[in-house]
Amino acid sequence: MILIKEFEFDAAHNLINYHGKCENLHGHTYKLVVKLKGTRDKEDMIIDFIELKNIVKENVVNELDHHYINNIIKQPTAENIAVWIWNKLFDKLKRDNCKLCEIEVWETKTSGIVYQGD
């Protein structure tokens, strides 16, 4: 089974190693999708949605929401943001019955990245 939880946060960034309009300061309402692959535990859940929400909010959303991402990630492309989020969550979401299997980072409704680890 794959469990899915979506999050949203607003943040600003600019791409310093890019030539085009995204090299200028701008913001997005990002959508983050976190997916865990696993089996049901003794409570018949992969993980409690509330526990997952708290982990993601504490370790990712609260750090990025309404912040300038360049202060956290040098070149904050969707790709680099996805890797940063993966690294923040992987160990915290590892359980005997499940683990992080995929995240999606959407900058707009039509542009995003899927990351499944290295």
Score class of each variant (00 low, 15 high):
K92F: 04
V61S: 02
Q116T: 03
I73N: 03
N71W: 08
D41L: 08
D41K: 03
I81L: 14
K99A: 02
I2P: 01
Y68F: 15
W84M: 07
K53T: 10
K21C: 07
W86N: 08
H19E: 15
H67C: 13
E51L: 10
D118K: 15
N59A: 06
I85L: 06
L32H: 05
T77M: 12
C98P: 00
E43W: 14
K21A: 04
K31Q: 12
N70R: 14
L93F: 07
I4R: 12
I69W: 05
A78P: 07
F9Y: 07
C22W: 06
K37D: 00
K109Y: 14
K88Y: 06
E43H: 14
K53H: 15
G27S: 12
D48A: 12
E79R: 05
E51D: 15
L36P: 02
V33H: 00
K99F: 04
L100I: 02
D118H: 11
C101Y: 04
V34Q: 02
K57M: 10
L89T: 00
F9K: 01
L3A: 05
I50H: 12
V33Y: 00
I69K: 06
I72N: 10
E23C: 15
I85Y: 02
D118S: 15
V56R: 01
I81V: 15
L3Y: 07
I16M: 06
I72P: 09
E104Q: 11
W86R: 07
E102I: 00
H19W: 11
K94M: 14
T110H: 14
I103A: 03
D44E: 14
I81P: 01
I85E: 02
T108R: 10
E6W: 01
R40K: 15
K35Q: 13
L93I: 07
V61L: 09
Y30P: 09
E6P: 05
H19L: 12
K37L: 01
V83K: 09
L32I: 06
D118Q: 09
L93N: 00
Y115T: 04
W86I: 02
V60I: 13
A11N: 04
I72V: 14
K92V: 03
E104Y: 13
I73R: 06
V34K: 01
E104L: 08
E63G: 05
A82Q: 00
Y30E: 05
N62V: 10
G27D: 07
E58A: 15
I4W: 01
N14M: 08
W106M: 15
F49M: 11
N59E: 10
V60D: 00
V105Y: 03
I72G: 11
L52F: 04
H19Y: 13
I69Q: 05
K35P: 00
V34G: 01
V60Y: 04
K5T: 01
Q116L: 04
M1Q: 10
K42H: 13
I72C: 12
T108D: 09
H67A: 11
I69E: 03
L25T: 09
D10V: 09
E102F: 03
N24G: 10
A12G: 11
L25D: 09
V105R: 02
C101Q: 09
I69L: 15
E63H: 13
T77R: 05
